[in-house]
Amino acid sequence: MQKMDLGLVFSTSGPYAALGQAARAGAEMAIADLEAEGVARITPMHRDPGGCQQNYETMTAEILRAGVAHVVGAITSWSRKDMIPVLERHGGLLWYPCPYEGFESNDHVVYMGAAPNHHMIPLLDRILRQGVQRAYLVGSNYVWGWETLRLARERLVAAGVEIVGERFLPLGDTDCNRAVTEIASVRPEIVMNSLIGPSNVAFLRGLPTQDRPKILSCNQTEADLDSLGDAGEGLISAGSFFEALGPDAFVARAAQSAPNGRCSGFLATTYASVRLLADSVRRAGTTSPRAVFEAACARPHDTVLGPVAVDPVTRHAALTPHIAALRSGRFEILASASAPIPADPYLINLPPVAMRTAEPSTLRIVQ
């Protein structure tokens, strides 16, 4: 049986603890399954930065100095960007399992999470085809919020949509009164919401349930649905995995491991990342990051996300985008791509802006 050490760096406490807890549960599930199947015995080195930005650098350095070559982790883009210089100095490889805003490709990262053409672009294009005239943008005040809303603004304005307001909240801030008041005043048809953690919960709970605009999200998953209660009803999200996609046996097992009993995209993508890493180490016959990365790119992989291929140039996974609506505490799939789509992190192959009379996109409607 193959043996290896693995760093796990997830904030299981702090402002976005629910996301970190779900991701860590996915990693631990994969580690247990790999040992039970006789594939690999992985010794994890856990670190909890607590959502404090400066801890990611120091904790990653601790892991790499201990001789560990691979790290699975980080939730926010701030944390990933703080880890990259350490990975570069020590020659480590980060397997990043979270959706992000794109415009990055680093030799020390494998991007397993959804890129903008897996979430923001198909989500907005679906809504634009339905006809929208007024939009409001709200996000957390860091790189994810800035960049996702920049992309949203450009896409919406190109389609002739008026941006009637835009507001950013400090990460973890729960005072959403000004945004809620502005939305009530300007009455947009849609709100593009890139808030995370407690800010997201406070915002959705603060919006009135009657006559609320359509809320769109690129990062809402099952990981923190419990905290929303009925406030998330009707929200539309995009991502590479939702609980409704199954497989049923995996979802049932994940329910036993996840802190909130739900199988989210954070859990599933981290699970897939650890398994893909272990398989690539086995094929490479070494834990050397360069050899392992080459092995990861050499063939497609069957995962709980569906077929996944890692591009050797962009270093991103090709994923199958899905759009889902939150109804009665469960995401229902509205549309899915018919096959995995290569990541386009720099949006160099951006499709034409969708208009109300446009032809259907590459996402098929789920009946």
Rank of each mutant, 00 (worst) to 15 (best):
S288G: 06
S288A: 10
P289W: 06
P289F: 06
R290S: 13
V292H: 03
V292Q: 04
F293P: 02
F293H: 09
F293N: 08
E294L: 04
A295H: 01
A296Q: 03
A296D: 03
A296K: 03
C297P: 03
R299Y: 03
R299D: 06
P300H: 11
D302Y: 00
T303Y: 01
V304S: 00
L305Y: 03
G306R: 05
P307Q: 08
V310G: 01
V310K: 01
V310L: 12
V313T: 09
T314K: 14
T314A: 10
A317R: 02
A317F: 06
L319Q: 11
P321C: 14
P321M: 12
H322D: 07
I323W: 06
A324V: 11
L326K: 03
L326V: 08
L326Q: 11
R327I: 10
R327D: 08
S328W: 06
F331Y: 07
E332A: 11
L334H: 07
S336D: 03
S338G: 15
A339L: 03
P340H: 03
I341L: 15
D344F: 09
P345I: 05
Y346W: 15
Y346N: 15
N349G: 12
N349R: 07
N349Q: 14
N349Y: 10
N349V: 02
N349K: 05
P351M: 06
P352K: 14
A354Y: 07
M355R: 12
M355L: 14
R356S: 12
R356E: 15
T357D: 15
E359L: 05
P360S: 13
P360R: 09
P360H: 07
S361I: 05
T362V: 05
T362F: 15
T362H: 15
